[in-house]
């Protein structure tokens, strides 16, 4: 087996300010990595660089042996639509609000070549079911959905094409606690069943404890500690990680 996603010495600056720097890791097939750290520590910057939304100033990114930074824009877009998925914190950024729920999911299938209307609708219905959206809501627009439903719809839209690598930026942020727990359960089940690799940015240590196999802790744009999730949370080595872990009640 080989790593699915390889990152070396990644750096992004905003003028003289560091966005993130000196980031290296290998992500293996089926592995879920969490990225935690205080506000402004560079988590979103790093994720954007990894997902190709931003161009890093330095470093290398390889996906399945392919040099992502050397790809042409259309090549990279195709990759992002087929083998990758990105779940935004705000479902409005990841959904088309003027299109029906079924359309939001079906559109992605069409983008990868599905043409048969009946099959597309059937798959879309199946996926709405998997994210616990009743099939009689298939023709409603996402604007008629609650925040939690919108987030589940965004997840269905992103996973329907069977990606191999999913990026998520605060997927449960902005949702109330009970809705969060349900979404996490769902994500956990989907990630396991589909054998997905994922990189999840969050400030919530309970979320990473539940979802992530391994954890990366960032501060000031740098990775200060990484390792097995429960080991980093239960036996943190770096002063900053110790502070982070001791500041929350119980995870």
């Amino acid at each position: 087996m080989k790593p699915l996603f390889t990152v070396r010495d990644l750096e992004k600056r905003y003028g003289s300010r560091i966005g993130c720097t000196d980031v290296s890791f290998d992500l293996w097939p089926g592995e879920v990595m969490g990225i935690v750290g205080e506000s402004g520590s560079g988590k979103s910057t790093l994720l954007s660089c990894l997902a190709g939304h931003m161009t890093p100033d330095q470093g290398q990114v390889h996906f399945d042996g392919r040099d992502v930074l050397a790809m042409s824009e259309p090549e990279r877009r195709f990759l992002a639509r087929t083998e990758w998925a990105f779940v935004h914190q705000n479902p409005r950024d990841g959904l088309r609000m003027a299109v029906s729920a079924g359309g939001n999911v079906g559109e992605r299938l069409m983008a990868v070549g599905a043409r048969h209307y009946g099959n597309i609708r059937e798959t879309a219905t199946d996926w709405l079911g998997r994210v616990e959206i009743a099939s009689d809501r298939i023709d409603d627009r996402p604007s008629a959905f609650s925040g939690g439903m919108q987030q589940r719809l965004q997840i269905a839209r992103n996973l329907v094409t069977g990606p191999r690598l999913v990026f998520m930026d605060e997927p449960t942020g902005g949702l109330d606690v009970s809705v969060q727990a349900r979404l996490l359960d769902l994500l956990r089940g989907l990630v396991r069943k589909m054998g997905l690799s994922a990189i999840i940015v969050t400030h919530d240590l309970a979320v990473v404890r539940l979802l992530a196999d391994r954890l990366m802790v960032m501060k000031g744009g740098r990775v200060v500690e990484q390792g097995l999730t429960d080991q980093v949370l239960d036996d943190p080595q770096h002063p900053y990680t110790q502070l982070l872990v001791s500041s929350v009640l119980q995870v």
């Binding site: 390792g227 097995l228 429960d230 080991q231 239960d234 036996d235 080595q237």
Partner: peptide
């Protein structure tokens, strides 16, 4: 025990 489990480093 936790060292054996890999939970402590």
């Amino acid at each position: 025990m936790r060292l054996l489990w890999g939970n402590y480093l």
